[in-house]
Design a protein around this nucleic acid. Structure first.
Length: 758
DNA sequence: GAGCACTGC
C-alpha cells in the first residue's frame, strides 16, 4: 500500500477549488512528500514556504525569527542524516548532549517525515517531568506557528491539552503514555514514539522500553526513537538490536549522534578524601568566593536539614570575611533549594547576585541544592559547581518490604551532569570533594535505575494489566530482583487483584485503573460496601500527597499545638480526614492553612487527587457514601483501612511501647508524630520508615477481629511463626470460633464471604 | 521525641 503523497496531505478546501490549476500543486508546502521517505531538502524548503503546511495560513513574522534561531542548533545541521536514518530504520537510538536541540527539533522532524496528520495518527514524545512536557510543547507550538493545544499539545496528569483529531504532535509524561498503554496495548494511536531522557531510567520509561520492544515486533509500522545521554547509548543500542541470535548477537540499533553546545568545564579533585563533606563543601564555597572571578556557585548537598544548616554557616563565615576585608571580598547571598520549599522561595534562585559597593568587589550568589538542580531545575549564571559526591537515594529491601532513603555516593554519570551545570552560560569550574582515584575506581558508571531500587507492587499490577503474562521473563532493560517481583505478586494475590495463577481478577483490573498503590486502591474500591466511600476517598487522597504538616524549626511547639487541635485519638488516618474536611470548610480564608501550620500546596494537591479519583469511581459505578452516625462511621473507616492494609499491622509487645510487625516480626516504634493517645494492642500503619530507628508512621488502632474478617487468607494462623503475636491471634481466633458456634448467623461472616467475591 | 532525595499516574 502506497500513500498518495499528493492527496494525502491536501487541505480539504483546496481539493475542489485548486485541483484544476497546475500552480496549486507548487503552492502546496508539502508537495512531493512521501511519508517516511522525506528528505532534508524537502523539509528545508517547506520550512521556508510562505504557508504553514499544517494550518494553511501564512507564516507569522515570529515564525521566521524563531526559524533563524533553530537553524543555529547543532541538530538542525544534521537534518539530512536524520531523515536518512529515520527512513531506513524502525528503531533509532539518539544521543544529543545539552544544547543540541533534540527535544524540540527531533519530534518536528519526525512529524514532517511521518505526516501523522494524514493518517489520523500522532507522534508522541515523552518526558519524565510535567513541567518539561508543558514548556517544551509550548515552545514547539511557537516554532511551528500553531496554537498550543491544537496541532501541537501536551498531556499530563490533571491536564490534557490536546484536541482529538487535530493534535498530531504530543508531548507527554512517560507515566501518561504508560497509562494509555494499559487501555491500548498496541499504542495504536501513535505512528512514532520518542522516549526522551531515557538515561534517567524512570520506572515508567523502563517499562515503556520493554513494552515498545515487544510492540515493535507486532507493529512494523511503529517507529521508535530512544533519546539519551552519551554514556547509556550503547546499552540501549544493544537492547533494541533487531534480529538477535544466530550469529547476529552483535547487532545493535543504529545510533544518531549530535554534539551539544556547552562551554568547557574544568574539573578539580581533592588530593585526599574529605572526612566531613559538609565542612569541606562550606570551606570550598568560601575559598571560591575569596579567590575566584565573579560568577555564581551551585553546591550539591543531600537534604533539607543539611542544606539549611550549611546556608546558615556559609552566611556567618561570609559575613565575617566581608567585615574583616571589605576591600577584596564582596557580599554573598546563600539560597537553599529543595522540592518541599514553597514555589515562591524556589524562585529566589533566579534573583541576581547582590550588588557590591560602588567600586568595591562584586557580590556573589550561592545556591545550595538537592539533586533537584541536577535535572529538574536549571539555573543560568552558574560558573562554579561544588560536588561532594553524595545524594539521598531510595533503596528497597524486599525481605522486610521496606523502602528507605540512604545517603549514598553518586554515579559518574551523575557527577558529569552536576559538572555540566557550570558550563551553561560560559566556561566554568567544578570542584569535586573526592579524589580522582575514587572517581575512576569507586563510583558506579550509572545510577541504579529506579526499577532496581523500589517496591514493584504497582508496577507488577500495571504489567499484568498491560497483558504481560510472564513477569519474570519479561524483557527488562535491567531485570529487578526475583524476590522483589515475588513480594509484589504475593501482595497482589492477598489483595485479590491476582488469582493464584497470577491472572488479573476483575477487582485487579479496576485497581489498576486507579493511580494509586494497590493497598490504597483496594481500600477505596471496597469502601462503598462499608458506606464510607466519601471519607475513604479523602483519606486515600491525603495519603497520596506529600506531608501536609508544617513544622518550622523555630515554631515547633506552636505547630505541634496546632496539630493537636485536629487530632482524632482513634488514629492518624482519621486525623487526616478531619484536616481535609476543615480545610474545605475554610477555603474562603486564604491564610487558614498557614495559620494552622499546614501546607496549602499539599492540601490543594489532595483536593486535585480526590477529584481525579472521584471521577474514576464514578466511571466504575462505585457509590460515594457517607454515614450520619460519626461513631459508626469512624468504625467503618477503620475496617475499610484493614481491607487494604491488613499486611501492615503491628502488635504491641510488652509495656515499653515497642511493636512487632505481623509476620515479618520487625521491632518498630510508633513515630513521634503519631496522634494516638494510648498505645493500643493492635495497630495498622501506612508507612514503615527507617531513620534513626525503625518507626511506623500514620497509625490507626484496629480490632484484631477485623483481620480475620477481611483478610482470612492472610491470617491463616498456620503460616505464622510461633511467638507472642501468634498467641495473641490464636486467642482472638478462639474467641471468634466460640462466638460463631453460639451464633451461627453472625452478620460479619456474611460480609466476609461477600468480600471474597468483590 | 522525629524530618520528605527526586519524579510520575
Amino acid at each position: 500500500m502506497v500513500d498518495n503523497p499528493y492527496l494525502a496531505h491536501r487541505h480539504p478546501s483546496e481539493r475542489s477549488a485548486g485541483s484544476s490549476k497546475p500552480m496549486a500543486a507548487e503552492k502546496e508546502p508539502l508537495f512531493g512528500f512521501v511519508p517516511r521517505l522525506v528528505k532534508g531538502d524537502q523539509v528545508r524548503s517547506a520550512l521556508e514556504h510562505e504557508l504553514n503546511p499544517f494550518t494553511k495560513q501564512p507564516h507569522s513574522a515570529q515564525y521566521k525569527k524563531i526559524l533563524e534561531q533553530r537553524k543555529k542548533l547543532p541538530v538542525y545541521g544534521q537534518m539530512d542524516d536524520f531523515f536518512k536514518i529515520f527512513s531506513e530504520n524502525q528503531i533509532i537510538v539518539m544521543v544529543g548532549e545539552t544544547g543540541s536541540g533534540k527535544t524540540t527539533q527531533i519530534p518536528q522532524f519526525v512529524a514532517y517525515s511521518d505526516l501523522p496528520h494524514t493518517k489520523g495518527k500522532m507522534v508522541a514524545c515523552t518526558q519524565p517531568r510535567r513541567v518539561a512536557a508543558m514548556s517544551v510543547a509550548k515552545r514547539v507550538a511557537d516554532e511551528m506557528d500553531v496554537q498550543l493545544g491544537r496541532q501541537v499539545g501536551y498531556s499530563i496528569r490533571f491536564e490534557d491539552m490536546t484536541e482529538p483529531g487535530t493534535t498530531f504532535l504530543k508531548y507527554m509524561t512517560d507515566g501518561m503514555l504508560l497509562r494509555e498503554a494499559m487501555n491500548d496495548n498496541q499504542l495504536s494511536r501513535y505512528s512514532t514514539i520518542i522516549l526522551d531522557e531515557a538515561h534517567e531510567r524512570t520506572l515508567a520509561t523502563d517499562i515503556l522500553m520493554g513494552l515498545l520492544k515487544k510492540i515493535a515486533q507486532e507493529r512494523p509500522d511503529l517507529k521508535i526513537i530512544i533519546m539519551s545521554a552519551t554514556l547509556d547509548a550503547l546499552k540501549f543500542q544493544k537492547y533494541f538490536a533487531l534480529n538477535r541470535g544466530k550469529g547476529k548477537d552483535k547487532d545493535t540499533a543504529p545510533l544518531f549522534k549530535v554534539p551539544g553546545r556547552t562551554h568547557p568545564v574544568e574539573v578539580f579533585y581533592t588530593q585526599e578524601p574529605e572526612p566531613d563533606y559538609v565542612e569541606a563543601a562550606i570551606r570550598t564555597v568560601l575559598m571560591i568566593h575569596r579567590a575566584e572571578d565573579p560568577g555564581d556557585i551551585l553546591l550539591f548537598l543531600t537534604g533539607e536539614e543539611e542544606i539549611e544548616d550549611a546556608c546558615r554557616k556559609i552566611k556567618i563565615e561570609a559575613d565575617d570575611l566581608v567585615n574583616s576585608d571589605p576591600d577584596s571580598v564582596g557580599p554573598l547571598i546563600c539560597i537553599p533549594l529543595y522540592s518541599s520549599l514553597p514555589p515562591q522561595q524556589q524562585q529566589r534562585i533566579f534573583d541576581p547576585p547582590p550588588a557590591g559597593r560602588p567600586g568595591g568587589p562584586p557580590g556573589r550568589k550561592v545556591v545550595v541544592s538537592t539533586n533537584i538542580a541536577e535535572t529538574s531545575l536549571t539555573i543560568d549564571g552558574i560558573v562554579y559547581v561544588v560536588d561532594p559526591g553524595f545524594s539521598k537515594q531510595k533503596v528497597y529491601n524486599p525481605r522486610i518490604r521496606v523502602e528507605s532513603l540512604l545517603v549514598s555516593p553518586i554515579s559518574k554519570a551523575s557527577a558529569q551532569q552536576r559538572a555540566g551545570r557550570a558550563g551553561r552560560t560560559r566556561p566554568g569550574k567544578c570542584f569535586r570533594l573526592y579524589t580522582e582515584k575514587d572517581f575512576m575506581g569507586e563510583l558506579e558508571e550509572q545510577t541504579y535505575p529506579e526499577i532496581l531500587r523500589c517496591n514493584l507492587a504497582n508496577t507488577v499490577l500495571e504489567l499484568v494489566k498491560l497483558g504481560i503474562k510472564d513477569l519474570v521473563r519479561f524483557d527488562y532493560v535491567d531485570a529487578p530482583a526475583p524476590e522483589t517481583l515475588m513480594r509484589a505478586l504475593e501482595l497482589l494475590n492477598y489483595l485479590a487483584a491476582l488469582d493464584d495463577e497470577g491472572n488479573l481478577t476483575p477487582l485487579g483490573g479496576i485497581m489498576a485503573e486507579f493511580p494509586l498503590d494497590p493497598q490504597l486502591a483496594k481500600m477505596l474500591i471496597v469502601s462503598p460496601e462499608l458506606k464510607v466511600s466519601n471519607e475513604v476517598l479523602t483519606i486515600t487522597a491525603m495519603l497520596s500527597v506529600p506531608n501536609v504538616w508544617l513544622r518550622p524549626n523555630n515554631q515547633r511547639q506552636q505547630a505541634d499545638a496546632a496539630k493537636a487541635m485536629f487530632t482524632v485519638p482513634d488514629g492518624d488516618h482519621l486525623t487526616l480526614l478531619n484536616v481535609f474536611n476543615q480545610y474545605m470548610q475554610n477555603k474562603y480564608d486564604k491564610n487558614w492553612a498557614w495559620n494552622h501550620y499546614l501546607s496549602a500546596r499539599a492540601l490543594q494537591q489532595a483536593e486535585n487527587v480526590r477529584e481525579q479519583l472521584k471521577r474514576n469511581m464514578e466511571r466504575y459505578e462505585l457509590d460515594l457514601l457517607s454515614m450520619a452516625d460519626e461513631k459508626k462511621m469512624y468504625l467503618n473507616i477503620r475496617q475499610a483501612l484493614v481491607c487494604g492494609f491488613f499486611m501492615q499491622v503491628a502488635h504491641k509487645e510488652g509495656e515499653k511501647g515497642s511493636y512487632l510487625t505481623i509476620k515479618d516480626n520487625q521491632v518498630v516504634a510508633l513515630h513521634p508524630s503519631c496522634g494516638l493517645d494510648t498505645q493500643p494492642e493492635w495497630v495498622l500503619f501506612n508507612e514503615f520508615v527507617l531513620t534513626t530507628r525503625p518507626y511506623i508512621r500514620t497509625v490507626t488502632e484496629i480490632r484484631p477481629d477485623w483481620l480475620f474478617e477481611y483478610a482470612a487468607n492472610y491470617y491463616d494462623l498456620n503460616t505464622f511463626q510461633d511467638g507472642e503475636t501468634k498467641r495473641a491471634l490464636v486467642r482472638v481466633a478462639n474467641k471468634r470460633a466460640g462466638k460463631a458456634t453460639g451464633r451461627v448467623d453472625e452478620p460479619s461472616s456474611k460480609r466476609a464471604t461477600k468480600k471474597q467475591r468483590t
